[in-house]
């Protein structure tokens, strides 16, 4: 390669490396802001004031979903398998909402330290399979007694 081209190439590569390093530092510094939500465990370390909007993500804990008598509001626990958080919500739940499903809720803590959600979003994983296969797998996973 002729020397001029080599110099150009090295220059471009160095500039790109410097930019990548700068980008990495910025993203690292902003990592808490880039995270869409806190997990219940992260929430314990973040000092969230009452009435400030906050997003929390995790799984809907099994057997924790309780609908109130009128059916208009629902109460369930979000877990990251280490810590839990109870959530109150009034409104329409997404179709994918069910026990064990990943969810992201937006809301705030009221003065009584209860979490009031304004929005519940369902998260889905990257697993795709036919319903028949899923049923088979679930049957296999069930402990034989």
């Amino acid at each position: 390669m002729n020397p001029l081209r080599r110099r150009k190439l090295i220059g471009i590569v160095l500039i790109l490396l410097a930019l990548a390093a700068a980008a990495a530092l910025i993203l690292f510094a902003l990592r808490q802001n880039i995270n869409l939500f806190y997990t219940p465990t992260q929430l314990q370390h973040a000092h969230v004031q009452a009435n400030t909007p906050v997003r929390i993500g995790g799984y809907v804990q099994k057997h924790s979903v309780q609908y109130d008598a009128s059916g208009a509001s629902v109460n369930f626990a979000i877990t990251d398998r280490l810590n839990n958080l109870r959530v109150n919500y009034q409104g329409v739940l997404p179709t994918l909402f069910r026990e064990g499903q990943g969810v992201v809720v937006t809301g705030h803590f009221n003065q009584a330290h209860q979490f009031i959600a304004d929005q519940v979003l369902a998260k889905h994983d990257a697993k795709y399979m036919p319903a028949s296969v899923a049923k088979m797998l679930a049957a296999q996973a069930r402990p034989r007694t």
Partner: peptide, 8 residues
């Protein structure tokens, strides 16, 4: 790297 709503 981050918590997202989008799946992996």
């Amino acid at each position: 790297w981050w918590n997202t709503l989008h799946q992996g």
